[in-house]
């Protein structure tokens, strides 16, 4: 266990030193502030308070940005380190390969958590005070968004390890990571949309589509946050009409990213154990 924490702490230290944390925090903060400022215009006199609107926009932003940051953080973890020769020594040390990967995972999740909490946290506070305070309960929404974003990020960090462990070159791992991102957050939804349009009898829309939606951790994340906002803010209906037909509801939706994270960590550990550095 000591080895796991040592590796995690070193990953965090490297994340601070190479400005990964500060850079990703600033990117998240910049995008979030843009949404806060743009979102304040229509927020006006609607019943829904401004912070909740911002949280809804940030949730959509998270679906694209957080997996990207997570994959950029993890694609280099194994292929790149073997390429540069920094991993061989760690693998020769008494720490098991499973512990090495777990340590990296905890470190990378911590790096992402720092970035997301500072980026979204600041943006949330700006939104809160820019609109003259108001219901402090809205800040709970920001906390929920941060927590679930970290969870979504953790899932994609673990998926990135699979990409990193299965190829020999960093460049290939990078290409693979981008492909995973493109597929899971852009193409997947387009394909589902196409499926909805193509299925005339409604079987796809009724029986298959909800499952496929929950199956994708990014979509599951969006569903959870939107339904949570729905419950908080009356009448916004951001979750869409599918809400009632979903196989999983509320917190259970988050089982999807959780399951993906566990499976991806297991699979990447399995691959790492077979690597011959």
């Amino acid at each position: 266990m000591g080895g796991v924490l040592t590796i995690a702490a070193t990953e965090i230290r490297i994340g601070l030193r190479n400005r990964w944390i500060i850079l990703s925090s600033l990117i998240l903060l910049a995008f979030a502030l843009i949404l806060v400022l743009l979102g304040s215009a229509p927020g006006g006199e609607v019943k829904t308070d401004a912070v909740t609107v911002v949280v809804a926009s940030l949730a959509t932003l998270s679906v694209y940005l957080v997996p990207l940051i997570a994959l950029l953080l993890s694609f280099d973890a194994i292929a790149g380190e073997i390429d540069r020769g920094t991993l061989q020594l760690v693998l020769a040390s008494p720490v098991s390969r499973g512990a090495v990967l777990l340590g990296k995972f905890l470190g990378h999740v911590a790096v992402l958590a720092i970035a997301v909490s500072s980026g979204y946290g600041i943006a949330g506070l700006v939104a809160f005070f820019a609109h003259g305070g108001g219901d402090a309960g809205a800040l709970v929404g920001v906390g929920r968004l941060i927590a679930t974003s970290v969870m979504l990020g953790a899932t994609f960090i673990a998926i990135g390890y699979i990409a990193s462990a299965s190829v020999r070159q960093t460049g290939t791992a990078a290409a693979l990571a981008i492909a995973i991102w493109l597929f899971s957050v852009v193409l997947y939804d387009l394909a589902l949309l196409g499926g909805l349009l193509a299925s005339q009898d409604g079987v796809f829309a009724r029986d298959i589509f909800p499952w496929l939606l929950v199956l994708n951790p990014a979509d599951a994340f969006r569903l959870y946050n939107m339904s949570a906002i729905d419950a908080a803010a009356v009448g916004s209906n951001l979750g869409g009409g599918a809400g009632s037909a979903l196989p999983l509801a509320g917190l259970a939706t988050l089982l999807s990213p959780l399951a993906w994270a566990v499976i991806a960590l297991g699979l990447s550990t399995f691959i790492l154990k077979r690597i011959r550095p």
Partner: peptide
């Protein structure tokens, strides 16, 4: 190893401490 490499952001002491911890 023949081509020894370390995370270049760390200091020498941090590197040695890291491996000391891993080796207990």
């Amino acid at each position: 190893p023949e081509q020894v490499a370390f995370p270049k952001m760390l200091t020498g002491r941090e590197v040695v401490r890291f491996y000391a911890r891993l080796k207990g």
